[in-house]
Amino acid sequence: MSDPVLEVSELAIAYGANLAVKGVSVTVSENEILGIVGPNGAGKTTLLESIAGLHPLRQGSIRFRGNRIDHFSVHKRRKLGIVLIPQEENIFPGMMVKENLEMGAVLMPARERETQMDYVYELFPTLKERSRQIANTLSGGERRMLAVGVGIVANAQLFLIDEPSVGLAPKLVTNLLERLRQLKEDTKRPIALCEQNIKVLNVADRILGMEAGESKFCESLDVVDKGKVKELYLGLHA
């Protein structure tokens, strides 16, 4: 496999005196989905957000295509193609579906934006039907698709997706995760995907297990002990 796109080493992130991430090292490569699992409060969100530049580093380093980016602003990282899809408050509630997607692609030239919007509509045809609907009038599932769309439309080099399936009905979860796998196949881009749903095992190539801010294991899907993953990290939602 080629060099990893993202290399996180010995990363520590704190909120005040509380360490939320304690020395985590992990890589993500081209054409790979890294599933990040762990109970609530394990530090998954903090890890993704700090890669996107939302939290200062206490310790460690973040490399993107070989270069250190840990002192880059959120804006600069987005320009490099590092795209975070947050777990909550991930849409612009009073704007149309179409306008939400335009905002997701705000840094892109107009022509490229059109292509990318078409791609999002192809992945989620419902969004196309509802392109003129105001975002906060969408159903829960549609809203989640839109949130993912606002990220995908940006033609990323690296996707960081935080628990996209939480709170969705089982059928919708399967569908959404399937779309993410298709995204990987279409774009070959690396995806770091936090999940607490067992179905993540159907789409991930490798699994990082986190607990209390620490990395417990990081193994490829064919060697990871699925029973252990289910029991320890996904127990509540399995």
Binding site: V74, H75, R78, P86, E89, I91, P93, G94, E102
Partner: peptide, 23 residues
């Protein structure tokens, strides 16, 4: 206008506006 839309986006969800790259 795109600038105007980005103002609306900023007033509706400041954090997401920063994340998507709006100034």
């Amino acid at each position: 206008t795109r600038v105007g839309k980005s103002w609306r986006a900023t007033s509706q969800n400041l954090r997401l506006a920063k994340i998507v790259g709006i100034n």
